[in-house]
Amino acid sequence: MKDQIITLAALCQVANLVQQVSRKGQADESELEMLLNSIVETSPQNTLAVYGGELSKIRAGLILLIEHLGDNKNDKVKDPEFTRYLISLMNLERKLVKQPKKLALLSERIEDTKRQLTHYELTSDPLVASFASIYSDIISPLGAKIQVTGEPNILKQKTNQYRIRALLLAGIRTAVLWRQVGGKRRTILFSRTKLVQLAKQLLASLD
């Protein structure tokens, strides 16, 4: 279940960064880099290696997971938009895995993008645009598009659109990994208390 916590925490970070970009036009650069790197980390030694190999890299995600899945008496912490992003990413991943040709094409496009790393930084505009185009070409046509809400003026800017799509691609990567390590939607429904307890233990180990 530890691997499930790691991937679920990372998925929470994706949703949170999408909100940061759509509302403020900016995102935590270290988190952005970590999540984009998860897309190109295709042969990891273990689950944590996908996210930089350090539990501290997903600290923010662990906190978000506890806030949104825990029995928090302050309902203001619960964010329907945040939850919608998580569910939408999981739904898109389920559609993706049912289409082997799309999965193969996704792998090919990611490998092509990895080659650009010899010329560009991971968070550079050309790389982010490449990730965004992969999402638009392969993931978006799968079904109901994820409706990202935020400040209209911010969402109109191409740079922000690309960052959001690149983050959503990282979310799909994480949703695939979540399923590979045994995560299921019913896990969230029926094992929520256990997930939160373990997330709290992992968070405490960082202090």
Results as ranks from 00 to 15, higher is better:
residue 1 M to R: 09
residue 5 I to T: 03
residue 5 I to Y: 03
residue 6 I to P: 14
residue 10 A to R: 03
residue 11 L to E: 03
residue 12 C to F: 07
residue 14 V to P: 01
residue 20 Q to C: 07
residue 23 R to C: 13
residue 24 K to S: 14
residue 25 G to E: 15
residue 30 S to Q: 14
residue 31 E to R: 05
residue 35 L to N: 03
residue 38 S to I: 07
residue 38 S to W: 00
residue 40 V to T: 09
residue 42 T to D: 15
residue 47 T to E: 13
residue 58 I to E: 03
residue 62 L to T: 08
residue 64 L to M: 09
residue 66 I to A: 01
residue 67 E to A: 15
residue 72 N to K: 01
residue 72 N to F: 12
residue 76 K to W: 10
residue 77 V to C: 08
residue 77 V to Y: 11
residue 78 K to G: 15
residue 79 D to K: 15
residue 79 D to C: 04
residue 80 P to A: 11
residue 83 T to W: 06
residue 90 M to L: 12
residue 91 N to I: 08
residue 101 K to I: 13
residue 101 K to Y: 05
residue 106 L to R: 00
residue 108 E to H: 12
residue 112 D to H: 12
residue 113 T to W: 02
residue 117 L to E: 14
residue 118 T to K: 15
residue 125 D to S: 15
residue 128 V to E: 09
residue 129 A to R: 09
residue 134 I to Q: 01
residue 135 Y to S: 01
residue 139 I to F: 12
residue 144 A to V: 06
residue 145 K to E: 06
residue 149 T to D: 03
residue 149 T to Q: 05
residue 149 T to I: 08
residue 151 E to T: 09
residue 151 E to Y: 10
residue 155 L to F: 04
residue 158 K to Y: 12
residue 160 N to K: 06
residue 162 Y to Q: 15
residue 169 L to R: 00
residue 171 G to M: 04
residue 176 V to P: 00
residue 179 R to P: 00
residue 179 R to H: 14
residue 181 V to C: 07
residue 182 G to T: 09
residue 182 G to C: 12
residue 183 G to E: 07
residue 189 L to C: 06
residue 192 R to G: 06
residue 194 K to A: 01
residue 195 L to Q: 02
residue 196 V to D: 03
residue 197 Q to P: 10
residue 199 A to E: 06
